[in-house]
Amino acid sequence: MYVNDETRTLLKIMKFRAIGLWHGELMHNAATMESYSQLLHEPCDEDEFALRVGRLLLKSLQDGSTLGATLASRLCPEFASIFWAQLSDRLIGQQECDYKNFGIFRSSRATGQIRVAFEPSDVVLRGPFPNPCSPLPRPNCTSTITAVRSWTGKGSMFWIGRILARSRNGGCH
């Protein structure tokens, strides 16, 4: 059960983009702009500020806000730009990019000219998308929205579990 380098890199870069987008959302959303503005004016260091913003985001979600729905339209172009840029970098450096449970891109010059082949993953080819960490068993999903909801929760839990494990082992990233 693992996430390979290219998939992990993609997720991590997107995480940092998402942090920036969340700051923007909290700053401009009518439900949170006042609280966020207060945080901006409270003296604290960078780490403490991040902790406070995180607590504000969590509290807003627990209070039933729909920040995610408004953020949704900004996530796709960000993700797409990272996805294709990482693919290009990976093909240039390694000639292969295996996005877990999405598919494998390979470049070759077998006939003298550069060719790019794509081998889709079984799940992208045939149906709902499972956790990249554990492709089986396939989920019994009635809709793709349910699939996203179900598998993202599990994927996030997997990631948080890794943080916990590293924390217990004394790691720091």
Partner: peptide
Amino acid sequence: GRDWLSILSMATSYASYYAWANAFG
């Protein structure tokens, strides 16, 4: 870097990945 903002942003990243692949398929 392990604050709630990071945790929820990682969940956002995962969600984007799954939505992307699901939408693609």
